[in-house]
């Protein structure tokens, strides 16, 4: 098999597909590296830097992010030595310094043995957002609405909607807040109000906007959690191993065009 290659992870030889993302090999082999900005259904982004490992070829070595590094024959990886942990933990410490009061970031850091950060926060009281970009990317790659993006650069970078206004293209699916690893992305409540005001009496169902029912209308004032349809789709998504029905919607749209009606 020409596309099967051999790599070494922590002194153990492992077989892999040529140019397979390292994270997939590590997961298959049960080797833990933390990730924050990675999602299996999205293109790798490689920005949180907490999944770094060391790769070496003879005397040469460098640090790479496992989420997007394509493995090649003969690569030797180190995922657990002190050097590697130092680089990785510094990134976690930096994010903790950025979000000292964000519960999930604090918990994540604790799990990796970091309880205090020397970094100072950019915003007074700390930020909620770690800039992993999951919300921005899912809205672009899966939803296709591109209702989120980044603005400013350097330490001032933040997630925003186009021109800081309520985005016309948002369909209110809420996958951004589902994927957000922190509590930074809160939108649903506000968004339903916007949908209500935008669509008036017509009230297209959220699932219609996602592409499941062409022309479906909401019967109960956008209170999705009280709606059977919502329950059903959430269960369906869970059965398929997705966090959010939108992932199913895209698979539906891909396999049988317009055939998602129940």
């Amino acid at each position: 098999m020409p596309d099967r290659i051999e790599i070494t992870i922590n002194r153990t030889k492992v077989e892999a597909a040529d140019r397979e993302p390292l994270i997939d090999v590590l997961r298959r082999e049960g080797i833990y590296v933390p990730t924050l900005c990675h999602h299996d259904r999205l293109e790798p982004y490689g920005v949180c830097r907490v999944c770094m490992v060391k790769v070496s070829w003879g005397k040469k070595s460098k640090y790479v992010t496992s989420c997007n590094y394509p493995v090649e024959n003969g690569d030797v990886f180190d995922t657990e030595s002190e050097d590697v942990l130092k680089v990785r933990n510094m990134s976690i410490e930096a994010l903790l310094g950025r979000c000292p009061n964000e519960k999930s970031v604090v918990e994540f850091a604790h799990r990796h043995g970091i309880s205090k950060s020397r970094f100072s926060a950019q915003k007074p009281g700390g930020d909620d957002c770690i800039l992993c970009g999951l919300c921005v990317r899912v809205c672009d790659e899966i939803v296709g609405a591109r209702a989120l993006g980044f603005m400013s650069r350097g330490p001032d970078r933040e997630v925003c909607t186009p021109f800081m206004e309520n985005p016309e293209s948002c369909i209110g699916c809420g996958v951004c807040s589902t994927l957000c690893p922190t509590t930074a992305m809160k939108m649903e409540g506000q968004k339903t109000a916007i949908l209500k005001s935008r669509h008036g009496d017509v009230r297209p169902c959220r699932y219609a906007l996602m592409g499941f029912y062409p022309g479906g209308v909401c019967a109960n004032s956008y209170e999705c959690r009280r709606c059977d349809i919502d329950q059903k789709f959430r269960e369906l998504a869970a059965m398929e191993g997705c966090e959010h029905p939108i992932f199913l919607a895209r698979e539906y749209a891909g396999s049988k065009k317009g055939g998602g009606t129940e």
Binding site: V47, C48, R49, V50, S91, A94, R98, F119, S120, G154
Partner: peptide, 18 residues
């Protein structure tokens, strides 16, 4: 460099600021 960093990855963004 702080004002020219794009802010995409953690080390450059948080490290330069620090």
């Amino acid at each position: 460099l702080v004002s020219e960093s794009c802010g995409k990855c953690t080390p450059c963004r948080e490290g330069l600021k620090e």
